[in-house]
Amino acid sequence: MNRPTLATLGMSLLALLLASMVLAVTFGPADIAPMEVWQTIAHHLGLVAESPVNRLRDAIIWELRLPRVLTAAAVGAGLALCGAVMQALTRNPLADPYLLGLSSGASLGAVAFLLLGASLLMPLGAFLGAGAAMASTLLVTQALGGATPTRAILAGISISALAAAATSFLIFWSATGDSYREILSWLMGSLSGVVWSEALLVLAALAVAGLPILLSGRALDAFAFGDTAAATLGVEVASLRWWLLGGTALLTGVLVSIGGAIGFVGLIIPHVVRLMTGSRHRLLLPVAMLLGASFMVWTDTAARSLFAPRELPVGIITALLGAPIFLAVLLRYRRIT
């Protein structure tokens, strides 16, 4: 079996991502050419003193579209990474931050902090919510008699439903009119109105949590045959699992606090990538991040363009694409559930 190397696959996916991002910036009501995008970026990075792009178009590119496209890329990369790591750690092909309840928990935490008036601390609330949801899901899975993919999903669904109900109640209780609508759209997963500070927060979270996770790729390979096999290959199973699950919760929390509960990206992307690269995580993780980033850039572009000027929450698109793939994976693994 000939497998692509990280160099060739990584380079081509990186090129795809860059091209996707530039093209995505050109999409929208104002007609913008790819060249203008490059000129604006070069100008703002101080590479060229004068930009031929006029102020209004400059603002559309730099203040409106670039932060959003960057955020979409980072969210896609982060979700794909979280999904791949959770699938390896729990040996569960169906694991994903959305399906195991982390996203709902993060939403609950974020909404609670928002309505308490601590909107700046929303990412922290989301992290706490994601961590609590993950712990609950794992505990319920254990209580159901140990980890099988189906039990984990059932546990995730119940935790998810509970968190969603609590979130809805909080909103019903305290939100009014406009904020209600805004929160609902965000809950379904939306990158609408993202600004630079949010883009930088997501990128920072990706760097802080993502780099250690990428470096632990080989240890994740050791989990292919379970905890005992990993332990006898020298992996400190318990501490690695806690660190990685903690990192996943942190990353999910930040992603959800910015983009809402965008489902299925963490499920679809790693499965598609495995078909190309196999299950070695030193290759799988970075490739999944790159592909997840491009995927999210395009789905978010579709979300804001398809029904323009109205915005479709991007979570609806990812669910439309992801649910059938979820079913396909479910059917493929039915023998082990």
């Binding site: 040996r91 050791a222 292919a224 045959f225 020298g234 495995r274 196999g278 299950s279 693994y333």
Partner: peptide
């Protein structure tokens, strides 16, 4: 310097035979 072979070695991972043996080099 210590290796262990379990009774059952089942996996859902898409790994080739060579990639599985390469796991032994992780330490």
């Amino acid at each position: 310097f210590t290796a262990f072979v379990e009774q059952s070695g089942a996996t859902d991972a898409r790994l080739t035979a060579r990639e599985v043996v390469m796991l032994g080099r992780i330490p």
